[in-house]
Simulated scan of single mutants.
Amino acid sequence: MKNSLMKKYIAHKYFFLMLLPVLVYYGIFHYAPMYGVVIAFQDYQFLKGVGGSPWVGLDNFRELFGGLYFGTVLRNTLIINFYKLVFGFTAPIVLAVFINEVSGKWFKKSVQTISYLPHFLSWVVLSGMIIEMLSPSRGPVNMLLSLFGMEPIFFITEPAWFRAILVSSDIWRSVGFASIIYLAAIAGINQEMYEAADVDGISRIKKIWYITIPSIAPVIVIMLILNSGSIINDDFEQVFNLLNAKVMDVGDVLSTYTYSEGLLKMNYSYAAAVGLFKNVVALVLVLSANYIASKLSDDTIF
């Protein structure tokens, strides 16, 4: 058994050689820094380092869960990311199905290119574009509102609008690129099923509902499992570039809170405790989603 397995490794040695840079990257930048998790259980002092800083046990976590503002930050994170998961997860599926149904190649390629483009722009650029588009003085959105006799709204500083802006801008940036996975899954569907449906006179809507969606269901389930951890893991770059003092109560999330406590206030141990809490919860969510999926179907990660 071992010899046959070793022969397979040797036969595919070049594939493993191509994988080596990825393993080195994850080892250096993702696994090696995990040693710093011990800071969450210390009163970390920069000059003494990790090895010399005194241990405080769970004091940082007691301070974390006993803090009044942490509840607000956690609630904001869960609400915003829940909306992103609900609307942002379904949007690429809908876009992929619509693109697949378009017959014109030129139009299909144009839609794909336009929808992919925001993914390759940084949040610094996209945030500037969003702020300009929603500007009360020169933004096209408020100019349109003024045509209907409405007063201009500075959406970015309005707590009632800020979460909607975060969710919609996240969908705008990710929907095109995320749809590639579903388009690839749709391309692998047996075309004979569609031909048989055409013979039976089945409408396009029914073909989507009874052929396309069930055929890509395994991919949808796996992507849902992988995205379940995003309920607690927010996008720091997006929130940081759009956040302002007037919307802190509805927009401050765990990542920006960690940045504020760790880098601005130099409370490194407390910030490490926040980060460790967030990652542990994300791991539990992914494992729970995978377990539930294993009970409902055979489409799981492991």
Rank of each mutant, 00 (worst) to 15 (best):
K2V: 01
N3I: 15
K7F: 05
Y9A: 01
I10Q: 15
F15W: 04
L17P: 05
L19A: 12
L19W: 04
V24L: 14
Y26F: 15
F29N: 07
H30Y: 15
G36L: 00
V37N: 07
F41I: 08
Q45D: 12
Q45C: 04
F46R: 08
K48T: 00
G51A: 06
V56L: 07
D59V: 07
N60R: 08
L64D: 02
F65R: 00
L68N: 15
G71K: 15
N76C: 11
T77A: 01
L78S: 05
L78A: 01
I79Q: 06
N81T: 04
Y83W: 03
Y83H: 07
K84I: 12
K84C: 10
K84N: 14
L85R: 03
L85W: 04
V86R: 10
V86L: 14
F87L: 14
G88F: 04
G88L: 02
A91R: 09
V94D: 00
V94L: 09
A96S: 12
I99M: 12
N100S: 14
G104Y: 07
S115V: 00
L117R: 07
P118E: 10
H119M: 09
H119P: 08
S122A: 04
M129D: 02
M129V: 12
I130D: 04
E132M: 13
S135N: 14
S135L: 02
P136V: 07
R138C: 00
R138Q: 10
G139C: 08
N142H: 00
F148P: 05
F148C: 00
E151C: 08
I153C: 02
F155V: 00
I156R: 10
I156A: 14
T157D: 10
E158V: 03
F162M: 11
R163L: 02
I165L: 05
V167D: 11
S174R: 09
S174V: 00
V175A: 14
V175T: 14
V175Y: 12
G176W: 13
F177S: 05
I180S: 07
I180G: 09
I181K: 01
L183H: 11
A184S: 14
A187R: 14
Q191P: 05
E192Q: 13
M193W: 13
Y194Q: 04
A197L: 02
D198V: 03
R204I: 07
I205Y: 13
I208D: 01
I208G: 01
I211C: 01
P214M: 02
S215N: 10
I216F: 13
I216N: 12
V219P: 02
I222V: 05
M223S: 05
L224S: 15
L224G: 15
I225H: 11
L226A: 09
L226H: 03
S230P: 06
I231F: 15
I231H: 10
N233E: 05
D234Q: 02
E237I: 06
V239E: 11
N241P: 09
L242N: 11
L243R: 10
N244Y: 12
V247N: 04
D249C: 09
V253Y: 01
T258S: 12
G262V: 13
G262D: 10
L263Y: 11
L264G: 03
L264W: 03
Y268L: 12
A271V: 01
A272G: 02
A272L: 01
F277E: 03
K278E: 14
N279C: 12
A282W: 08
L283H: 06
L285G: 06
V286Q: 06
V286G: 03
S288Y: 10
L296D: 01
L296H: 06
S297F: 10
T300L: 07
